[in-house]
């Protein structure tokens, strides 16, 4: 299926968020996630099922003012 990851249309296989992060290569990286604008905590990623055209945001720590 195709979903939108950080603004980019992406073809993916996994449907569970935790498996998808592994598929995408994030592995054990320090990331936080939101699906369709809603935060998904690390402990809930296995229960989060992605669907066609969903919007996934993956963010990490960064400089800020």
């Amino acid at each position: 299926m195709k979903i939108i990851i950080n603004g980019e249309n992406t073809e993916v296989q996994a449907t569970a968020l935790d498996q998808l992060l592994v598929e995408l290569g994030y592995g054990d990286s320090r990331v936080a996630t939101a699906v369709n604008g809603v935060f998904v905590a690390q402990g809930h990623r296995a229960d989060c099922t992605l669907n066609e055209a969903d919007r996934l945001e993956v963010v990490t720590p960064r400089q800020g003012g």
Binding site: N6, V59, R62, G64
Partner: peptide
């Protein structure tokens, strides 16, 4: 120290490096 969150593609290490620095 004020910080933020931003998008990161898989394989980049900017977030991890900044986290260590902070």
């Amino acid at each position: 120290a004020t910080v933020s969150v931003r998008r990161e593609a898989a394989g980049q290490a900017a977030g991890e490096g900044f986290w260590r620095l902070v």
